[in-house]
Amino acid sequence: MPEFCLNNVRLAAVATVVPQTELKLEDDKTLYGGNEKQLKRVMKSSGFDKRRIVAEGVTTSDLCQQAAERLFLECNVNKEEISAVVFITQTPDYPMPATACLIAYKLGLPYTVAAFDINQGCAGFVYGLWVGGSLLNSTKKKVLLLIGDTPSKYTDMFRDGAAPIFGDAGSATLLEYDESAEPIYFDIGTDGSNFDAIIAQNGGFRNPPQKDMFYSNGTFEYLAQMDGMRVMEFTLNQVPASVTKVLKYAKVDKSDIDWFVLHQANKMILTNIAMVADLDLAKVPMQTLSKYGNQSSASIPCTLCDCLKNNLATGVHKLLFSGFGIGLCWASCVVSVTNLYCSAVYTYKE
């Protein structure tokens, strides 16, 4: 897709919720066959330390619902003004219906609301700004984005050999129609030839559930896998290029960007993107991943709340977001925010 821009969209508020249970990598003696030296090497280069996982029975929509409730309360949102709710996740409550319908009901949104899900992972936040912003231009009201994932549900992603890097999180973002808003510039792309570089093989309709797809402990064998080499190759080739492309399209010099808020994949990937794209590392927050793990589509909103809450609360700031991963997809955008409200990173309450 070529670059494109959206007018009249104000990124108004973001809230993030993480589960209570915190796991520390160093406490898991089963990883890498108990090879502590290897675990330390992984921790050092990836930057991962802790992550949060949901309790049994809690889903992504629960986290997002609480994030939305926080946002409504703290920003005094009139629910009647919300014209659409978009739930972006790869861990919906049900194969059907769209979880957004259920959340709209639970949040007490009016019957006039449009509600649908989007299956997107690490690029999900930027996709949300694009889709939500496009909706705003026809409804001219407010759009609620609920973005998050609970990768811990894909239990075999955490088996030995695949890095236990993912953390669960949910977020809520409010977009408002505002004719005075600066345009948001996007660059979005997809390399579907690598669709299986990150994949859950089982459980959809290509490989529907069968009796032999269960582990001895009764959990379902999603066969969730990631080919780290292919993902790294993709990241190095596509993401710095996308960052450069969107800056050029927006006619913005990288020195004019206040923060490059990148998907918190891991420290090595973020550092490499910054070096290849020649970004100032001081403007690339990467503390979130060591505290919460790789939070998939929620990593950008969580980084806003965790690292930039106070910086963004007042004034005008120019941000570059870039999400990249499963698909394999990438999506970058340059956005000017004015008095952007970011909540604290809240802990989910049962």
Binding site: Q38, M268, M275
Partner: peptide, 13 residues
């Protein structure tokens, strides 16, 4: 695998 990924990044960087 981590060493391979690291080396891949070094070629680029």
């Amino acid at each position: 695998s981590l060493a391979s990924i690291t080396t891949l990044a070094l070629f680029k960087q």
